[in-house]
Amino acid sequence: MEAVLAIAIGALAGSGVWLLLRPRTFQVIIGLTLISYAVNLFIFAVGGVRVGADPVLGAATDPSHYADPLPQALVLTAIVISFATTALFLVVLLTSRGFAGNDHVDGEDGTP
């Protein structure tokens, strides 16, 4: 399981970085989305990969019986914040497109 998840994180991050370096704003947004998936999964993985652990406290008193809540709490807010940043980037993209007349990240390539 660990190996699969690690490869997945690497693949998502790689795709994301490649897109991040592209010249078009939409590519950059998609790239950032993919990178945020990778990072969220990475933070989540720091708590350990557990199949079938209880996420909610039950009768058992042994902490190892449960999934690690801390990375989950971190990732939960990260998901919501990444939505907000995506929205912000999108709007910046649209505004820059409106001003510059093209969708190049530098706003100055001449072609629409």
Binding site: E2, A3, L5, A6, I7, I9, G10, A11, A13, G14, S15, V17, A38, L41, F42, A45, V46, G48, V49
Partner: peptide, 13 residues
């Protein structure tokens, strides 16, 4: 970057 992060993740896990 992808390979690096994958190895890092694997090591951390």
């Amino acid at each position: 970057i992808g390979v690096g992060l994958a190895s890092l993740a694997y090591a951390v896990m």
